[in-house]
Design a protein around this nucleic acid. Structure first.
Lengths: 135, 135
DNA sequence: ATGCTATTTGCAATAATGTTGCAATTGAAT
DNA sequence: ATTCAATTGCAACATTATTGCAAATAGCAT
């Protein structure tokens, strides 16, 4: 499925910023930050437009946001598009990358009476395979 | 264990800001934001001092930080002090509170070859028992 | 192709959050 | 009481994010 088709299927207007963002995160093997996405885009966009595009794409569950320690924000293609399950994310302390662990599903936790859950985020922090080899 | 004793046991100087923060989070049933902690303190402190105090207390594992959606930051007493296990956190979308779910331990996830984990964060989002009743 | 309209963009201003350097102050050990 | 390293407060600055509004644009109808 192409970026344009994804936008169309959600009745979202095809703008180069949105299309570009989807294209970039689709090609990425890891979650990308705003800056990393900007670097990979051909066009140049205002920060505001960028933020609004992320917001829209998130609302329509085309991408999802992963936050590490309240400053590092990364975006990845959402499962709704990839047709995979909710998964855990891995953050490497050394290379500062975030990766969707498609093979690590997020379990359903048993909550106390009266609590109901909507979604669960699992972030595993550590050292990735690549950085481990370099040690 | 009193706030002062906690500071002493870590060879940290006893300052009213640190002591106050520990005192407040010890008494709280939920994780508190910077503002919520400030409101409960008697003294008035500069933002910088506040941030530095949080940082120090975090480094010494006296408190821990829980981040929701990259802007909401809350602090709670750490397990090192409470002598409990690593636990999941619950965020209520309605009342914006964060609670340590002491009874929901964080499981150890099986990672792909070469990956090693240091810590895992689990944040469950939903509606808390109190808000559910009000619906 | 042309025009219309709602949506989207870019810009300026503003807000919130967090960090750094440095001088003044304070804790606690002697 | 004296001393000294640690801590605080202040000012400045950096980053991240949001809002209002006019200009530009996408997509639709003609």
């Amino acid at each position: 499925m192409k970026p344009v088709d994804i936008l169309n299927s959600h009745n979202l207007k095809r703008t180069s910023c949105r299309e570009g963002i989807i294209d970039v995160v689709m090609k990425a093997s890891q979650a990308l930050s705003e800056i990393e996405i900007r670097e990979r885009l051909t066009g140049n966009y205002d920060r505001t437009t960028f933020y609004r595009s992320f917001k829209t794409l998130e609302e329509y569950k085309i991408i999802h946001k992963i936050v590490v320690d309240n400053q590092l924000v990364k975006y990845a293609l959402d499962n709704t598009v990839t047709h995979k399950n909710k998964h855990a994310h891995f953050y490497c302390n050394e290379c500062n990358t975030v990766k969707c662990m498609e093979n690590i599903p997020v379990q359903k936790y048993q909550l106390p009476d009266g609590y109901s859950d909507i979604e669960t985020e699992v972030l595993i922090k550590g050292t990735c395979a690549h950085c481990k080899m370099e040690d």
